[in-house]
């Protein structure tokens, strides 16, 4: 049984590693006409949650979490959850495009129904809410391919890293999101709202994507505005350790299928 679980994780990791990593598209020129078209789409599709000024204060936004997190993203702040860039930096255009395309499980639908050009137009318009996008050129962190298929020893090593770095205190010993900090209600987002740790056994619910490379990205960049920190420094020069942890996280859901 363990063998087949490992094989499955390896297959998923391989698929994730060879490019099934969200939608990529050639970005059109970011000019006034593009932004104007993006504005029209934004006001039909996005305004109800993100608001007319991009502050995340659209009239439908409160109902997502009510008195708890999450609320829709406030594009005017520097705090973006879903990035490929270092913690504290703005997302890349590709990051924004990926979120619009894939959506956020549970909270934002995939807008793959808009064609790629329309999605890029929306990305161009979203960036106008935050002047920092004009000044900064965010660069993604390296996102390497998996070094190889998972092994039992590697997964066991990943489990030890999971405990060593304190993942269990929020996500729980078995990844159910029932860590002590979460259960006590100590986890707050940047708005001061109570936020729950993600249940890692339900991979499809992971907000920043569920492929191995998505999870790697989340661990390395952190989710700004939430208690989930970046572990880029912890794993600097320890790429294999990072992948062992990712494989262990994957095994939490694989074990339960």
């Amino acid at each position: 049984m363990r063998f087949w679980i490992t094989v499955c994780i390896g297959a998923v990791a391989l698929l994730g590693g060879i490019g099934i990593d969200g939608a990529f598209a050639v970005k059109p020129e970011d000019n006034r006409a593009t932004r104007e078209k993006g504005k029209r789409i934004y006001e039909r599709s996005c305004i109800f949650c993100h608001g007319s000024e991009g502050k995340g204060d659209g009239p439908a936004g409160w109902y997502l979490g009510r008195y708890e997190a999450p609320r829709p993203r406030d594009f005017t702040t520097e705090s973006f959850k879903f990035r490929s860039t270092a913690s504290g930096e703005l997302p890349t255009d590709q990051d924004l495009f990926r979120t619009v395309t894939q959506g956020i499980p549970g909270y934002m639908p995939s807008f793959a129904g808009l064609n790629e050009e329309e999605r890029w137009q929306v990305v161009s318009y979203i960036k106008t809410f935050n002047p920092s996008f004009k000044e900064e050129k965010p660069q993604p962190l390296p996102l390497p391919l998996p070094p190889g298929p998972p092994t039992d020893a590697g997964i066991e090593h990943g489990r030890k890293l999971y405990m060593k770095y304190g993942c269990h205190s929020c996500h729980g010993d078995n990844g159910y999101g029932d860590g002590s900090e979460s259960l006590k209600g100590n986890l707050k987002d940047s708005r001061g709202l109570t936020i729950s740790a993600r249940n890692l056994t339900e991979r499809e619910s992971l907000k920043n994507g569920s492929t191995p490379r998505d999870i790697y990205r989340s661990v390395m960049t952190g989710l700004d505005g939430t208690p989930m920190p970046s572990f880029a420094d912890s794993f600097a020069g320890k790429e294999k350790d990072a992948w062992d942890l990712i494989y262990y996280i994957l095994s939490l859901s694989q074990d339960r299928r």
Binding site: F48, G58, P59, A60, Y63, G103, G106, Y107, P109
Partner: peptide, 22 residues
């Protein structure tokens, strides 16, 4: 179908919010 929470479209089921109305 859309992998969404009910409250994306509803203030409280069955009442719709603005997103659900559109």
């Amino acid at each position: 179908k859309y992998n969404m929470n009910c409250t994306a479209c509803h203030t409280a089921p069955p009442i719709l919010n603005t997103f659900g109305q559109r």
